[in-house]
């Protein structure tokens, strides 16, 4: 690491396990702070990417031996772009994965314990692009640096 330009890219390859995903998320955090992002925007990106990677670990490789996840990051003056690819089964992506906000009037005992991942991804990214091809999932998350996300 320690590239001589502030826009040096990030390239990670790791096993689709919870522990490896955690390490990758920490590496992403270091890259974002080296790239000079303010803490709150860096948090947004780390949260959204963590959720995207969790989806791969928990869904794309469900029932399969943990495969590989490749994560690349690119920063320009205007945005950060994170590409995540894997060779698991197609990711559940689309309107049905929008996630359901919690109903504050629901009884506490009936609250869902999951399904929050896509809510966070949608709220923290400016654009999400998903493509399936050649047996791989390719998910790209775009974060504009000029505009605040809903998380700020």
């Amino acid at each position: 690491m320690g590239a001589d330009t502030q826009t040096a890219g990030l390239a990670l390859r790791f096993r689709a396990t919870g522990i490896a995903a955690r390490r990758a998320n920490c590496a992403l955090g270091s890259w974002l702070s080296e790239a000079g992002l303010p803490d709150d925007r860096s948090e947004d990106i780390r949260i959204a990417v963590a959720e995207a990677v969790n989806n791969i670990v928990e869904h794309a490789y469900l029932g399969l031996a943990p495969g590989w996840i490749r994560l690349t990051g690119r920063k320009t003056a205007r945005r950060v772009e994170i590409c995540i690819s894997d060779s698991g089964t197609p990711l559940p992506v689309g309107p049905e994965t929008e996630g359901h906000p919690v109903d504050p009037h629901a009884l506490k005992r009936t609250l869902p314990e999951g399904g929050f991942g896509w809510i966070l991804i949608r709220k923290l990214t400016n654009r999400v692009h998903y493509r399936r091809g050649a047996g791989r999932n390719l998910l790209t998350l775009h974060f504009d640096l000029s505009t605040a996300s809903q998380g700020l």
Binding site: D40, I47, I119, G151
Partner: peptide
């Protein structure tokens, strides 16, 4: 911390 509070807010868990 702010990051944790943000996740609760975005998922509306701060209402629960």
């Amino acid at each position: 911390r702010p990051m944790v509070a943000k996740v609760f807010r975005l998922t509306r868990m701060d209402t629960v």
